[in-house]
Design a protein around this nucleic acid. Structure first.
Lengths: 136, 136
DNA sequence: TAAAATAAAATTGCACACAATATAAATCTT
DNA sequence: AAGATTTATATTGTGTGCAATTTTATTTTA
């Protein structure tokens, strides 16, 4: 068993599967005007209404180098507002707008549609989730 | 159970795990002068010596938009050569160089080092692999 | 309290990743 | 065989993703 053979890697199917899932989201997210990364950010906003950039980064495992430009685009799209904190001016708090809230309705059926694209049973999904968590 | 909550997503842990794995490779690949994507490409060259861009794209699930610039960098680094086919001039065949072959020695212990970073048993790894394959 | 250390975002630079389009060559079709 | 179609890469444009650095603000420390 050659450990430097592509087919013997664990990382590679993981890398491919992650890209594949994002790709499968596209047809459902395009009509909403969201990328996958913006979509998971919106999930945070739908749940918390308002979070700092740092907190968002912790939740999404993304740094400011990725988030700052993306949040500016989302602000330009009218989905969120970005405000410097008054108490601590280093902090930027991002808050969902009415338009962002409204998008939630249109996103409602995305998870169901995606579930239809994934050929795993409920049990397998749970198992996969457990293994992925253990990986981190 | 809110299907639009981040914590209820299957995709998100997958997306995070994939990024995390690539991140864990960095300290081992940096000394070789390879990125993760270049590393998996080198695995193909170590195995096949010579492949077309198209075939490489099939194996790595990457398109020419990603491969062409990367292969040019790898050529500039002296790891591979790119040659237009003489029989069919549309085809570009990429061939590993001596230097590319030599890099294999230095990469030899990367899989072992990585295995030390992943907290999965052999059995769990097999299970994960099966679930990921079913996902595609 | 002034200087040093720390912290939060933003910026910069590089490397993907991929859709869409362009280019050029080979193949098919009539 | 000329035109249409298909095929293999390359190019373009947009959007991450992250390390490293910078900027600005806060906190700690001497």
């Amino acid at each position: 068993m050659d450990p430097l053979k592509l087919e013997n890697q664990l990382c590679f199917p993981l890398y491919v599967a992650a890209k594949e899932i994002v790709r499968k989201y596209r047809p459902f997210l395009d009509p909403l005007g969201l990328t996958y990364t913006q979509y998971i950010a919106m999930m945070v906003f739908w749940e918390h209404k308002s979070v700092t950039v740092g907190r968002l980064g912790d939740l999404l495992c993304l740094d400011s180098g990725t988030l700052t430009p993306m949040l500016k685009k989302m602000e330009a799209a009218g989905l969120v507002k970005r405000c410097r904190g008054s108490k601590d001016e280093r902090v930027v708090t991002v808050t969902i707008t009415e338009k962002g809230e409204a998008l939630r309705e249109k996103a409602q059926d995305v998870p169901t549609k995606m579930a239809g694209c994934v050929s795993l049973t409920q049990e397998e999904a749970v198992q996969l989730l457990a293994l992925l968590k253990k990986l981190n």
